[in-house]
Nucleic acid binder design. Structure first.
Lengths: 124, 124
DNA sequence: TACAAACTACGAAACTTTTCGTTGTTTTAT
DNA sequence: ATAAAACAACGAAAAGTTTCGTAGTTTGTA
C-alpha cells in the first residue's frame, strides 16, 4: 500500500522527522510558528495520518505521541519517483538535471554528486 | 502569479507539449487512449486551465485550439523547485541525489550530468 | 430541408483535502 | 473542591479537484 502524503501531511511529517516522536501540541507549536494553524487542525490531521498508516500513535501517556512511520529519505524517494513519472516521463536523470540547474550548488555538493556518479558507473 | 498545475492539468499539458496546439478532441483522443476519460471532462479542464492562464485559447475556428502557455522545461523547473521546498528543505542537490539514486541511469546520461557539473564549476 | 455529428458552455455531483468548532474527560493549580 | 488548562474525539463546514450530463449552436450530409 503506497500512501503518498498530501501537502499538509508532508508538512507535519517534516516536523516529526526533525523533532522525532512528538505530541500534537509540540507539532502544533512548531507548525504554528511558521504558519498560523489551529490546534485541532493538526490533531485531526495526525489522526487521519494514523489511520492511513503514515504515522504510529503511542497512547500510553495522556498526550498521545506520534511518530513518522517511514524515514524521511524513503518518503523523499517516493515523492521523487512520483514526480519523475508525472512530469518527466520516467526519466530520473532529467529531473536530476533540472534540480541541479535550478539552483547553484556549492563545490562540496557538486563533489558529492560526482562521487555518486563514480559509484554508479563502477556498479554498472 | 505562480499557478502550479494539478495532476490532471499536468496530464493535459503533457499532451499539449507533445502535440503542440490542439483541439479538445485531439487532446481527448490521446488521453482517452491511456486512461478512459469523458470528452467534456477534458473540455472543462481546458476551460479552467484557460481561466487560470495555464493555456491560451484560439477561438478562430469552431473547434477552439489550446496551447500550453509555458514551455515544458519551465514547468518542470517549477515543479522541481516546489518539491525541493516542500520535501527537501530547499536543498536541490539532495533532490538530485535521490533522483540519481532511485533509478539506474545509462552511461550516456551519467556523462551528460558530468558535463553539467563541469559547466557549473566553471561558471562559479 | 432535416437529421446527425461535432462543438462549446455550464451547472452541479462526487471526491478529496483542509480547517475548525463543540463536547467531554483528565490533570493541574488555587 | 473548584476552576482553569490540556487533551482527544468527532462531525461537519469550507475549499479544492475531477468528472460528467444536459442544453444549445453550428456544420456536414443524405
Amino acid at each position: 500500500m503506497e500512501t503518498r502524503p498530501t501537502n499538509s501531511e508532508l508538512e507535519i511529517l517534516t516536523v516529526l522527522w526533525r523533532r522525532g516522536p512528538s505530541s500534537v501540541r509540540e507539532v502544533h507549536e512548531e507548525l504554528n510558528a511558521r504558519k498560523q494553524t489551529g490546534y485541532t487542525t493538526v490533531l485531526k490531521l495526525l489522526q487521519i495520518m494514523a489511520e492511513k498508516g503514515l504515522v504510529t500513535r503511542d497512547e500510553e501517556s495522556r498526550a498521545h505521541i506520534y511518530t513518522a512511520k517511514s524515514a524521511q529519505s524513503e518518503t523523499q524517494t517516493n515523492l521523487v519517483q512520483d514526480l519523475v513519472e508525472r512530469a518527466f516521463g520516467g526519466s530520473a536523470h532529467q529531473l536530476a538535471m533540472h534540480a541541479l540547474g535550478s539552483k547553484k550548488a556549492s563545490p562540496e555538493e557538486l563533489a558529492e554528486i560526482r562521487r555518486l556518479l563514480d559509484e554508479m558507473e563502477k556498479g554498472s
